[in-house]
């Protein structure tokens, strides 16, 4: 994904992009340092290591072309919380019922989100939706294992896609329409 984009961006803006990414990542890591140390100090060491880790992380995961829309995070979290409540309850009920009501199946769902970060997020979120588990990504098709064929799994996946498209500031017409 980044490989396709890079030739089109000139060198200066690429460096600017990287600098911004390092700054954002350092800031996030400093927050994590504050959380881990519970505000007990050690700031020089903390900030220096945050900066170093941010530089290292750039080598492992270069800045993505998809940027998160931070103001859409709360809405996404709410959606995610409700879904994980449903998912936990659903699987718990199936577990404790003596009849063990399972009707597993493998489904293939063609994805509408762009490749890269949005797809990865979708696969993680799908695994926490009620009754679904990402099993394999084959190109643009996601293979899902679902606990019960009777559940409307595809609708749940489309809903998750819609939320992620909003989060990444992309509204592909096919996702928006569904």
């Amino acid at each position: 994904m980044h490989l396709e984009k890079i030739p089109r961006i000139n060198r200066n803006s690429r460096h600017g992009h990287k600098l911004l990414a390092v700054l954002i990542r350092t800031a996030l890591l400093v927050v994590i340092w504050w959380v881990l140390t519970e505000n007990q100090g050690g700031w020089v060491f903390g900030i220096l290591s945050a900066l170093m880790i941010a530089c290292c992380s750039l080598l492992l995961t270069p800045p993505a072309t998809h940027r998160l829309r931070v103001h859409r995070l709360p809405g996404f979290f709410l959606f995610f919380l409700v879904q994980s409540l449903r998912a936990g309850w659903d699987v718990a009920v199936r577990t404790v019922r003596p009849s063990l009501p399972l009707q597993p199946a493998i489904l293939s769902v063609p994805l509408m989100l762009p490749a890269g970060a949005p797809t990865w997020w979708l696969m993680l979120v799908v695994s926490l939706l009620p009754g679904t588990l990402s099993a394999h990504l084959d190109g643009r098709t996601l293979e899902l294992h679902c606990l019960d064929e009777g559940l409307d799994v595809v609708a749940d996946v489309r809903e998750a896609e819609r939320h992620l498209a909003l989060l990444f500031g992309q509204i592909p017409s096919s996702v928006a329409a569904s």
């Binding site: 994980s84 936990g88 399972l102 009620p130 588990l133 294992h145």
Partner: peptide, 19 residues
């Protein structure tokens, strides 16, 4: 209780996350 590796992953990930 669950019969295979896939269904067991369902049980572990979802119930434990909520817990």
């Amino acid at each position: 209780r669950f019969p295979d590796v896939y269904t067991r992953i369902h049980a572990l990930t979802k119930a434990d996350n909520l817990g």
